[in-house]
């Protein structure tokens, strides 16, 4: 421990490198867009709009 700021020796970072799936992210795979899929996602977004931040 450092007395100056009480810093720790190390910061442990955990990576969760998930494979983003376009089922709920609009933009993958970029730049090709499957409009059918987009319609499905848009509908889902509308339903969930109330939950959005």
């Amino acid at each position: 421990m450092n007395t100056y700021r009480g810093l720790e020796e190390y910061l442990r970072i955990g990576f969760v490198q998930s494979v983003v799936d376009c089922e709920y992210a609009w933009c993958k795979p970029r730049p090709t867009i499957n409009m059918k899929k987009w319609v499905k996602i848009k509908a889902w977004q509308d339903i969930k709009k109330d939950f959005a931040i």
Binding site: E9, Y10, L11, V16
Partner: peptide
């Protein structure tokens, strides 16, 4: 590509601060 992974790594803090 197309790989799921999880890993914990340690980054230096106090030595870098110094």
């Amino acid at each position: 590509q197309q790989l799921f992974s999880s890993q914990v790594v340690s980054l230096p803090v106090v030595s870098l601060d110094e």
